[in-house]
Nucleic acid binder design. Sequence first.
DNA 1: GAGTCGTTGTAGCATATGCTACATTTGTAA
DNA 2: TTACAAATGTAGCATATGCTACAACGACTC
Lengths: 185, 185
Amino acid sequence: MGKHEEQRASLEARLAQWVLVQGLSKTSLRQLAAGVGTSDRMLLYYFRDKAELLEVVLGRIAGAMTLHLTAALPEGQQFAPAALYARVAELAASAELRPYMDRWGEMAAAAARTEQPFAAIADAITQGFQLWLESRLSICNDAERRDMASLLIVMIDGGALLEPLDGGRVSTRARQAMQALLETI
Amino acid sequence: MGKHEEQRASLEARLAQWVLVQGLSKTSLRQLAAGVGTSDRMLLYYFRDKAELLEVVLGRIAGAMTLHLTAALPEGQQFAPAALYARVAELAASAELRPYMDRWGEMAAAAARTEQPFAAIADAITQGFQLWLESRLSICNDAERRDMASLLIVMIDGGALLEPLDGGRVSTRARQAMQALLETI
DNA sequence: GAGTCGTTGTAGCATATGCTACATTTGTAA
DNA sequence: TTACAAATGTAGCATATGCTACAACGACTC
């Protein structure tokens, strides 16, 4: 890796950390530059434009999130829906993963407004999460497994999205009801 | 109602219609003004500032949405969770209510980013929807009814929010799974 | 040492945004 | 008709944003 690539990689890492902590609302080039101690001019030296920068940085964040998830629930183990939901919901609420969920909520939100380049990234992450869940569900029927994985996505992501509303009461109650419901299967 | 109030009411209605169709991404004062055939100057003549304008306009939209919902499912009738979910999910997908759900998704999204004044409005709407659902659920136990209403909110809103992702496949599958799950109660 | 190429700073452009100051028109009451 | 207030237009400010032109600096080769 040449010096240029090294520098850029370092920049990417610092930007990812900054965005993970600060959120997607402070992502003007000048704000990002100040956050990682450089200038907007340099950001556009290392990245073609802002879209490419965000694409790379959000990709990094998504990758790190997948690593965390997979570290907690390695591939190979399979769970009943109630168990998988409990594990993932607990994970999503943990201090370690909370920032990632928050960012994810913001991204899905931005994607809903069809802001570029969020839509494409959110799409990729969603499909990745779908597969991740499917491969950990102990359901034989393919269609049922797909549907259940999607249900879990909506519950987990929806819960994360609605978390800020009503002081978190709605998503807490929903989680309880979902848990109870899944345990009846 | 004086002439001024009339004019303002008309403005509000036109703005609400415009925002309902165009979405929350085109809400600069100049864009709004062009959309309803006036000037940004006049918007600030009838509204203190942009925040007040959005508050009023989004409130109107929320009110209209509640009217639609209540027209379809009048107060007094009560349903089992599966039936209520089916009815509301069908409604939310209907051509009539789709724009409202889209706007609601955008609002929740904006609220997640703690953009003002979206958070407060989204909060109010959420609590209203919670009560609306509770009063239509045929569940005796209060806590269970609350939890189930919140679960439905997360499923319906979460589904609406994730609707744009993966071409709508995720939310469709989730809806099927949820329907099947609720029918086992 | 001169020149070259990769890197960085400075300054700025063009556009958009919320909002305001001031002037002008319009309606209305005397 | 005149006088006054309400309503509307014009122009602009201050700031923010993505991005670019140009110059300066630095290391390295010849």
